[in-house]
Design a protein around this nucleic acid. Structure first.
Length: 281
DNA sequence: AAAGGCCCCAACCGCTCTCGA
DNA sequence: TTCGAGAGCGGTTGGGGCCTT
C-alpha cells in the first residue's frame, strides 16, 4: 500500500541540476510564473523533473534575491534566538532572514551553529538544554501545525538592528533549584515576546522557576523588577517584530513542541535562564 | 602522493496541512 | 462532510571537496 508517489519516479531525472535545466526552469517561471501548480510545471516547461524537485530548486537556488555565502554574526544571533524560541521551524526562521532559505538555515544550523553553540558556552547551553531543544525540534516536526507560518513572522529588513538591543532569550533546563513560591511564578507578564513564551508554558505546566543569568549567577530581584516595569517592553516595542503576542502564543500552543520546548526532559530541574546578552553561539 | 575521514550542502523523502470538488 | 491532489515543511542522505595522516 502506501502513498502514491507524486510523480513517476522512473521517468524523472534526479540528482544535481544542470545549468541547462536551471535555465529552462528559470526562463519558464519568468515567462509564465508557477501557475500555482508545481506538479504540472515540469511537463509544461519541458523538464524531466519531479514538480517537487522544481519547486525546491526554484525556492532554494534560482529564485531572485537569494543570498548565498557566509552568514553574518547578526544572522547567527537571530537564528540562535529564534531556534531557542520556536525550535526547528526553519521556514519561520527563514522568514526573518531576507534572502536566506529554510534549507540554507537548516544546513547552517546542523553543520556549524549547533557545534558552535555547544562549544563556546557550554555552561549556558549545556547538553541537557540542547537535548531539550533537539527533542523539541524532533517533536515539532511530527506535529507541525504550520498553518501559514509566515503570517506569524513577516520578513523584516530592519529586524537585525533592533533585536540586537533586545538580547533576551529564555531557556529552561539545568540544575535543580526550584522555588515553590507562588509569588515567584511567572513574573514576566509584561516582558513581551520571550516572556510570553514563558508565561504561556508556565501557565500550563505549572512550573516554578528561579531567574538566573546564563552565567549561572542569580539575577538581582531589583533588576528583575526593573525589567518588569517596562524596560523590556520598551525594547520589545522597538524590536521591529511585526507580529503580535497572541500570534506567538497561538504558534506555540498549536505545536506540540511547546510541551517540551526548552524544558529539561524530566521536568524536574526546571528553571528559567536569563541571557542578558544574546544567547550567543 | 595517496588513502581515509570529515564536512558541507544540494537534493530527496515522507509526512502533515490546506483547499477545492 | 469527506476525500484526494497539491503544497509546504523538516529530517535525512549521499556525493564531492577538503583536510589530515
Amino acid at each position: 500500500m502506501g502513498r502514491a508517489p507524486c510523480c513517476d519516479k522512473a521517468n524523472v531525472k534526479r540528482g544535481p541540476w544542470s545549468p541547462e535545466e536551471d535555465a529552462t526552469l528559470k526562463d519558464y517561471i519568468h515567462k509564465h510564473g508557477t501557475g500555482g501548480n508545481w506538479i504540472a510545471l515540469p511537463r509544461k516547461a519541458g523538464l524531466k523533473r519531479c514538480g517537487k524537485s522544481c519547486r525546491l530548486r526554484w525556492l532554494n537556488y534560482l529564485r531572485p534575491n537569494i543570498k548565498h555565502g557566509d552568514f553574518s554574526e547578526d544572522e547567527d544571533r537571530l537564528i540562535c534566538t529564534l531556534f531557542a524560541s520556536i525550535g526547528s521551524r526553519w521556514s519561520i526562521i527563514a522568514g526573518q532572514l531576507p534572502g536566506r532559505t529554510d534549507n540554507d538555515i537548516k544546513n547552517y544550523w546542523n553543520t556549524k551553529l549547533k557545534k558552535k553553540m555547544m562549544g563556546s558556552n557550554p555552561y549556558s547551553f549545556h547538553q541537557a538544554t540542547l537535548l531539550s531543544i533537539l527533542q523539541n525540534s524532533a517533536s515539532s516536526s511530527s506535529s507541525s501545525s504550520s498553518s501559514s507560518p509566515l503570517s506569524f513572522f513577516q520578513p523584516q529588513e530592519s529586524l537585525m538592528g533592533p533585536i540586537q538591543k533586545d538580547h533576551r532569550v529564555l531557556m529552561f533546563g539545568g540544575e535543580a533549584s526550584c522555588s515553590s513560591s507562588e509569588e515567584n511564578r511567572v513574573k514576566e507578564a509584561e516582558v513581551g515576546y520571550h516572556g510570553t513564551f514563558v508565561k504561556h508554558m508556565m501557565g500550563v505546566h505549572d512550573y516554578d522557576y528561579n531567574y538566573v543569568q546564563s552565567s549561572g549567577m542569580e539575577m538581582e530581584e531589583s533588576e528583575w523588577r526593573e525589567k518588569q516595569s517596562g524596560l523590556w517592553e520598551e525594547n520589545n516595542n522597538n524590536s521591529g517584530l511585526d507580529y503580535g503576542i497572541e500570534e506567538i502564543k497561538e504558534l506555540i500552543s498549536s505545536s506540540s513542541s511547546y510541551n517540551n520546548l526548552l524544558f529539561d526532559e524530566n521536568h524536574t530541574d526546571t528553571k528559567a535562564l536569563y541571557h542578558p546578552h544574546y544567547y550567543y553561539c
